[in-house]
């Protein structure tokens, strides 16, 4: 990687100034997985727009990934290279970060070495992305490093003021508390594991008995079930793309829904995220959770295109600012 050495010899401070100005005209770096539809769509759209991209497949990085980052105080410079393509950090036009911090196979991750490599890769990328001055989708604050799905309690701990209504949530180790919560929720309750992105509707005595069978084996996170129309709101920069249950777009949502979504995204520090919403029968909008790395496969064509356009606009914002 001759360019790294060359960069370093020019002095970190000068490079840092260039990074600060956000005029990287080089590739948009995409860190993700081949099977990720969002990565595929953004790459395709960038190609159509004549914009260069550099894809870093997280699960096939090592030993083909050359990375050198010199840090001196608050300044830094360096270069990366993959698959014979190389770029200086200062030239990176933008970064779409859709990685899981696991650059090894599942079998390798089961080993001590695999977990060590994953921890080191995570430590690198979580420190590096915030230092880049080009657009990065998303820069993650540490609280979100290991949280892809943000449940209601996580949202409450990270977002001081949520204007959406929130469902009631109880966490208990005692099945009698769970029964009490079920009764006080009018029989509308879901059991939601704390560590899994799944949930189970509790519909009566029979399912309460099934829940009781887990007592002493698992704690119970219980969430009020909210009846109504489900929607997924994708925040992409300052746009909100609202898709209803069948994946089609809802063009007529209230402006206040857009504002509330943008406020949540801003409080989380996310340029791209999705919020699971329910419009209850009385017209109130509930937020049931959020994703900091939303998936787009369930969206219809029109909604996918809007999200993709929004992402490309975000990622190339530095270039447009530079030209201006």
């Amino acid at each position: 990687m001759a360019s790294t050495v060359e960069t370093a010899s020019r002095g970190a401070a000068a490079d840092f100034d260039m990074l600060r100005s956000g005029v990287g005209m080089g590739p948009i770096v995409i860190i993700g997985r081949h099977e990720d539809l969002c990565c595929q769509l953004v790459r395709q759209r960038l190609t159509e727009a004549g914009r260069e991209s550099l894809f870093l497949p997280e699960d096939r990085l090592f030993p083909h990934f050359d990375f050198a980052w010199r840090v001196a105080g608050a300044d830094g410079c360096g270069a990366l290279s993959y698959d014979g393509r190389e770029t200086n950090f200062r030239d990176v036009g933008g970064v779409l970060a859709r990685f899981y911090s696991i650059p090894v196979s599942a079998d390798e991750f089961a080993t001590k070495d695999g977990r060590y490599i994953s921890a080191e890769w995570n430590a690198l990328v979580m420190a590096w992305l915030p230092r880049l001055r080009c657009p990065v989708v998303n820069r993650l604050r540490p609280e979100l490093w290991y949280k892809s799905h943000l449940n209601v309690t996580t949202l409450l701990s990270l977002v001081l003021s949520i204007k959406f209504k929130l469902p009631r949530v109880m966490v208990t180790s005692n099945i009698e508390d769970a029964r009490r919560f079920y009764r006080s929720s009018g029989g509308r309750m879901r059991y939601v594991p704390l560590t899994q992105p799944s949930s189970f509707r509790i519909t009566g005595e029979e399912s309460l008995e099934k829940l009781a069978a887990l007592s002493g084996t698992l704690p119970f996170q219980l969430v009020e079930a909210v009846e109504g129309v489900r929607a997924e709101a994708f925040v992409v920069g300052d746009r909100v793309v609202l898709a209803i249950e069948d994946g089609s777009l809802n063009h007529e949502h209230a402006a206040e829904v857009t504002d509330h979504c943008l406020e949540v995204a801003e409080a989380l520090g996310l340029a791209f995220c999705s919020l699971s919403l329910v419009r209850a029968r009385r017209g109130d909008w509930y937020c049931m959770g959020a994703e900091r790395m939303p998936q787009v496969f369930q969206l219809g064509e029109e909604a996918r295109a809007e999200v993709t356009e929004g992402l490309v606009a975000l990622l190339t914002a530095g270039e447009r600012r530079g030209r201006a």
């Binding site: 430590a123 915030p130 540490p142």
Partner: peptide, 23 residues
């Protein structure tokens, strides 16, 4: 879980950090 990340914060509050290479 990221010592380099912590290092930047240390700089921001006025503490020195060693010259570093991550590679």
């Amino acid at each position: 879980d990221s010592k380099v990340y912590q290092g930047f914060l240390a700089n921001e509050v006025g503490l020195l950090t060693p010259k570093t290479l991550v590679t």
